[in-house]
Amino acid sequence: MAIFGLWIINKAGGLVYQKNFADGLSKLSPNEYLVLAGTLHGIHAITSRLSPAGSSSGVQIIEAESFKMNIFLTATGTKFVLLTSLTDTTADTALQRIYEAYADYVMKNPFHTPEMPIRTERFDVKVAEIIKVFA
């Protein structure tokens, strides 16, 4: 069980937060992460439109051979993506906890501009704490 990384994608498809926690996935340049996040945003839009029966929440898990992406869409359109190992079962809970930390330490911080990259010290600390519990 391992948590490799966390992405937060704003409602326009921009990557506002990206952090690696464990080795196992190849490191990319900041620009490559931005492109991938944008692509994921597009894929998510397609999957939420394709549902044959009414509205759909869109893709929630993408599994690969060595890892999986857990995607959590909030009511406001922000996406939290947690990259974990295949055996991980706690991603849902972890994402929920990270969302709570985001609501507290990012949205309530007067010095954060919504939809912009997150540079908030206490959020970093809190996320590190949560990852420590679940990893």
């Binding site: 507290d104 330490y105 309530k108 007067p110 010095f111 010290e121 206490r122 959020f123």
Partner: peptide, 14 residues
């Protein structure tokens, strides 16, 4: 509790 002072604000205390 939820406020992080950005670097450019320096020693500001809310």
């Amino acid at each position: 509790k939820f406020i992080s002072i950005s670097k450019d604000m320096g020693s500001l205390s809310c």
